[in-house]
Design a protein around this nucleic acid. Structure first.
Length: 461
RNA sequence: GGCGCGGUGGCGGAGUGGCUACGCAGCGGCCUGCAAAGCCGUGAACGCCGGUUCGAUUCCGGCCCGCGCCUCCA
């Protein structure tokens, strides 16, 4: 089965045909590093990580570029508010981002360019746009002239008039057209800035993605992803900049993940329901967060709930339980099973792929011979890898404890093992009352015991 | 106002013009000292009203409800 992708540009599912099958290129808009990543930021990272893994399984080379935006007015504002130097903010936040995304099981992209390392490329694009008559200088700004481009608004399905009519911000007087947007803007002495043909200044937001995607993937490349909220204006403006500057098509397949709500409400700072990945990692393993995210198709809206996260964790308990029961079996083969591959090739249908994994887990639990177990375990591990799941040791999974439990409050692993030994002795002596008392005490502290053929194992509920 | 998305069983969530995933929860059974886990079995749904059709949850039209975007929020 060949990969098909829903292309926002044409609003249909299309067979994926890479420009060069030996080198597939994809670009995803990365974070602006001024604060911890929230759960909405995590969605595209996880979704496009699965796509990256799938593409790597299908094609010999995949170049995945995800930028870091380290020059932005929000960063400047943060620095003004806190007094922390800009460079310190961006470095610290980028590190936290990497740490969070790794915890969510996301592979690092092939290239992770920083905006501040590509100012020269941005200036060059702006200059080229001026030369070709698509942009103009005004009061130290360089602006893209929207009416100069024929089919501006195709991706977002907006025409210039409705953009202008819907504008919520007062239009600056130096703009030729109200829809024009900034490529370069002047900086004051206390703002970060770089020398340019238009004086000391800094880039607009959209230009960086055009510069960095062009540098690492070429003027025309295969896939560009991001959240639906970036369709307008960010991606629309990237298209305008890149196609007009290079006179060539830009992106062949545009992919956008759906929105995320929290407990039925839009996540916003004013509602106080802003959830950072950091916070959530204290409540559940990163892999459970990933599982919850992949349990809904990427284009559907997600309502993020505590209950949903718990359900994801329970599902992973079932998967890891099967692995723990077959810990001594070596997985055979590395081919992705057809059901999982077909699901993912159908526009990244991760819920269907997870359903197929449940079926495989059922077969693993039922398998009788070692050779059968080995084959089925191979199917499971290959499926898990492309989804970025089941990448840790089952014992480690079951021993995961929430931060709030803490060492002082909760039982240590050694304490638990000691109590299990005590209970074993009691059971041997047929003192079931004592044995059950130990089990009940542990259960009250969130530790569930399971007696199996190889002895007693435990997990944190 | 313009553009767009969603409404599936108790819950989460795929999908399909007829054979109605998958998981959790429930119920019955096997297993177990008893449990847990696992296995077997089982009930339960497609917002409303029309239309097309032999037949619609699936296609078309209208309506209701929820949500998003319309210059820098993934």
């Amino acid at each position: 089965m060949t990969l098909s992708i829903y292309n926002t540009l044409n609003r249909t599912k299309e067979p994926f045909q890479p420009l060069n099958p030996n080198r597939v290129g994809m670009y995803v808009c990365g974070p602006t590093v001024y604060d911890f990543a929230h759960i909405g930021n995590a969605r595209p990272v996880i979704v496009f990580d699965v796509l990256f893994r799938l593409l790597k399984a299908l094609y010999p080379t995949v170049v995945y570029v995800r930028n870091i935006t380290d020059v932005d007015d929000k960063i400047i504002k943060k620095s003004e508010e806190t007094g922390e130097p800009i460079r310190a903010i961006t470095e610290r936040t980028a590190r936290a981002f990497h740490d969070d995304m790794a915890a969510l099981g996301a592979l690092p992209p092939s290239v992770e360019p920083r905006a501040t390392d590509h100012i020269a490329e941005m200036i060059e694009i702006a200059q080229r746009l001026i030369e070709k008559g698509y942009a103009y200088e005004a009061e130290g700004h360089v602006l893209f002239n929207v009416p100069a481009m024929d089919d501006y608004g195709r991706l977002s399905n907006l025409d210039r008039d409705s953009i202008v009519a819907g504008a919520r911000v007062e239009v600056a007087g130096y703009k030729k057209d109200p829809a024009d947007f900034v490529l370069w803007k002047p900086s004051t002495d206390d703002q970060p800035g770089w020398e340019s043909p238009w004086g000391r200044g800094r880039p607009g937001w959209h230009i960086e993605c055009s510069a960095m995607s062009g540098k690492y993937l070429g003027v025309t490349f295969d896939i560009h992803g991001g959240g639906q909220d970036l369709i307008f204006p960010h991606h629309e403006n990237e298209i305008a900049q890149s196609t007009c500057a290079h006179g060539a098509p830009f992106v062949r397949y545009w992919m956008h993940n759906g929105y995320l709500m929290v407990e039925g409400e839009k996540m916003s700072k004013s509602l106080g329901n802003f959830i950072t990945v950091r916070e959530l990692r204290g409540e559940a393993p990163g892999e459970a967060i990933r599982m919850a995210m992949l349990s809904t198709h990427y284009r559907q809206p997600i309502d993020w709930t505590r209950k949903g996260l718990q359900q994801a964790k329970d599902a992973l308990d079932r998967f890891y339980g099967a692995l723990r029961a077959n810990a001594d079996i070596e997985a055979a083969g590395s081919e992705i099973p057809a059901a999982v591959k077909d699901a993912l090739c159908d526009d990244l249908n991760t819920p269907a792929a997870i359903a197929a994994m449940h079926e495989i887990v059922g077969r693993l639990n039922k398998a009788e011979s070692r050779s059968e177990k080995s084959l089925v375990k191979g199917d499971l591990m290959a499926s898990a890898e492309v989804l970025g799941l089941l990448q840790q040791d089952p014992e480690a999974w079951f021993k995961w404890a929430p931060e709030s439990t803490g060492e002082a409050v909760g039982l240590s692993d050694a304490d638990i093992d000691r109590l299990i030994e005590e209970r074993k002795a009691a059971r041997k002596a047929k003192d079931f009352a004592a044995a059950d008392r130990i089990r009940d005490d542990l259960k009250a502290q969130g530790i569930v015991l399971e007696d199996g053929p190889q002895g007693t194992s435990w997990k944190r509920g």
